[in-house]
Amino acid sequence: MQRILITGAAGGVGTLLRPRLARPGRVLRLLDVVETTPGPGEEGVTGSVNDLDAMTAACHDVDAIIHLGGQSRENTIDDVLELNVAGTYTVLEAARRAGVGKVVLASSNHAVGFHSRDEVPEGGLPADASPRPDTLYGLSKVGIEAAGRLFADRYGLAVIAVRIGSWFETPPGVRGLATWLSPDDGARLMEACIATDAPGFRLIWGISRNTRRWFSLAEGEAIGYDPKDDAEAFAGELITGGEPDFLADPELNRAGGGWCEVELGLPMT
Rank of each mutant, 00 (worst) to 15 (best):
S166E: 12
W167D: 00
W167P: 03
F168Q: 07
F168W: 11
F168D: 09
F168T: 11
E169Y: 00
E169W: 04
T170C: 03
P171I: 03
P172I: 04
G173V: 08
V174C: 03
R175E: 02
R175W: 00
L177R: 06
L177H: 06
T179C: 08
S182C: 06
S182E: 04
P183Q: 09
D184K: 12
D184R: 14
D185E: 02
D185V: 06
A187W: 10
R188H: 06
R188Q: 10
L189D: 03
L189P: 08
L189Y: 08
M190K: 09
M190Q: 08
A192E: 05
A192S: 12
C193R: 04
A195Q: 13
D197A: 15
A198C: 13
A198L: 15
P199C: 05
P199I: 06
P199G: 14
G200S: 12
F201K: 02
R202T: 08
I204S: 02
G206R: 05
G206C: 10
G206T: 07
G206N: 06
S208C: 10
N210K: 07
N210W: 02
N210Y: 01
T211Y: 10
T211G: 08
R212D: 13
R212M: 13
R212C: 06
R212N: 13
R212Y: 13
R213M: 11
R213T: 15
W214Q: 06
F215M: 15
L217E: 00
L217P: 01
A218T: 12
E221T: 14
